[in-house]
Design a binder for these strands. Structure first.
Lengths: 338, 338
DNA sequence: ATGAAAGCGCTAACAA
DNA sequence: TTGTTAGCGCTTTCAT
């Protein structure tokens, strides 16, 4: 590896001391004449300052750490976009790690971020990483947990999440309003946020005199599991004499899988069954899918701002969901039919 | 910000010198007894070593830098996945920056990566960044340019790309084989790689006695432009008495836009017009879209491997495209019709 | 096997 | 305004 030009060499070339070069670079008090000599040396030698050393001195990097569970989900994509925009506006880079839902890697990844002395940390990891995150926040690194709650957060640890119960209520109101009466729901695992969405859905349905029996609820980790879950839901409900006329998916991650299972079954949406899912994405409009949306870009921005501003205490920022009605939940041509 | 525990404090706590702690941490020669005393101190004090300082000493970070143009494209998503997997296997983190197609930011971002002394750099930026990348490679940082060529690369600068001409030929053969005769094509800007795809398409069509007139070719930067381009293509061809019976999109970025323009026009795929696009994505199967695929995950892996292995010279790795036939290019019900 | 001391590239006191 | 000096937290000779 070619030897790097150091501040000392620039100093020698410009005929000044290293301290003076540092001052020129960081806007200290220097003569215009000296400054121009230094800049000349900088460009002559193609000097690229070492951000690592600077950070060592500052005790902290200017980089923002991000540990995500699932890059491929549209929600996370927009989240990253929001984070990245704020980072760019602050001259920060983003140190990124994707865990691909491998929980056992998450803690190690967070530890690495800590070792790199990131300026702040934004995560969507599971609660098995809580202890590590807590220590990081207590150590003075602002942390933001996205998409879930955090029990008894220390100062410097913030959460950003959706009003999950409201999302469920929104779903319930929409479906009930369109005359759907027998609803099945597929969730992503049985994490708290997912459960709150289902709870909201259940309460909302109850207000309309509709029930959501436990057997009409299934959770899946993988796409394959989701497809099987849909089939089981469909068959189970029919077996109980309550064939489903709507299926709800509480996560954008499994939208494709649920949709595939439905159409693979030969069901027509919305005639045979209504389909309501979560998180908007580029194809949703073309496919005519009704979706619950989260302001994910805005959530990313807020997360990064919390890191950058590092307010005192522990913020719990809750965003409200919205619903974009499209054809997939229209009143069916044959209401009540299977 | 709480004071961080340093190696010196661990040393004091364990009753040894800092050098010994360092040896324990990095696998030097130490007594088992000393080692266990040190580890005890490490966990007692919750010591998190400073990766920044380590890197300063090593002259280089262990992080891999990635500058991407467009996170939202499925191609880049899989590319990142491949990079991230290799990075994880090597204990590296990925420093990530998305330029959102803002060319003027790209050079600055690359400069920042250089300042952070990344172990290597992977970019999908435009050729206005070439000078900066070249200097980085010459300075000893392995660089990988993805999805395009690089003129006269120095040692340590590698390229990874698709055989674009072959992609075009694949498209031509497929469409000609299905009886399509009047083809229009939408590209992403007029970058060299896109031009090569069109050239391959044109040559391939010629082999089947078909022409691809310049007027049947349009390039777009944004989705809106793409939609307009499709309309113009459709109208122009009809005006020339050669109504299109197939439309090709050479970039995954604009697939939605082209598809929307087509269906928005009231055209049925593939009866009225065949649609062939680039880059597979989760919904392509559900929508029945025929696509040209690139092994994007594998390309990401290779890119990261080139960074990690840093072979001498300058590699130019070319991957072959494939075609996944689906309904969108089936022989239309009314062949030759508009 | 261990410690003392030097130094990685930079910044920030302190003098001059 | 500028240079000298002393670190930042760590690794690595070189002695012992």
């Amino acid at each position: 590896m070619a030897k790097r030009v150091t501040i000392g060499e620039v100093a020698a070339d410009a005929g000044v001391s290293a301290a003076t070069v540092s001052r020129v670079l960081n806007g200290g008090a220097v003569t215009e004449e000296t400054a121009s000599r230094v800049w000349a040396a900088v460009s002559r030698l193609d000097y690229t300052p070492n951000a690592l050393t600077r950070s060592v001195f500052a005790g902290r990097s200017s980089t923002i750490g991000v540990v995500m569970r699932d890059l491929s989900s549209p929600f996370f994509l927009d989240l990253i976009r929001g984070i990245d925009d704020v980072a760019a506006a602050n001259g920060s880079l983003v140190m990124f790690a994707n865990t691909f839902r491998q929980r056992d890697h998450e803690t190690a990844l967070i530890q690495m971020m800590d070792e790199h002395r990131v300026r702040g940390l934004i995560v969507t990891t599971g609660d098995q990483t809580d202890a590590r995150i807590r220590r990081m926040a207590e150590g003075g690194t602002p942390c933001v947990v996205v998409a879930r709650r955090f029990v008894d957060p220390p100062a410097g640890l913030h959460t950003i999440r959706l009003d999950d119960a409201a999302a469920g209520a929104l779903m319930a109101g929409h479906l009930a309003g369109r005359g759907r009466t027998s609803i099945g729901v597929v969730t992503s695992g049985d994490r708290p946020a997912q459960r709150e969405r289902v709870a909201g859905l259940r309460r909302g349905l109850a207000e309309h005199g509709l029930a959501l029996p436990g057997e009409a609820e299934a959770s899946a980790e993988t796409e394959r599991e989701a497809e099987r879950a849909v089939v089981a839901l469909l068959d189970g409900a029919r077996g109980r004499g309550m064939p489903l006329d709507a299926i709800v998916c509480t996560t954008g991650r499994l939208t494709v899988a649920v949709h595939t299972a439905l159409t693979g079954r030969g069901l027509t949406i919305p005639d045979d069954i209504a389909f309501l899912t979560t998180d908007d994405f580029p194809w949703a409009a073309a496919l005519g899918l009704t979706v619950i949306t989260q302001p994910s870009y805005e959530m990313g921005r807020r997360a990064a701002e919390l890191v950058v501003d590092n307010p005192g205490g522990s913020a719990d920022v809750v965003f409200e969901p919205d619903l974009v009605p499209r054809g997939s939940t229209d009143r069916g041509g044959r209401p009540g039919s299977r």
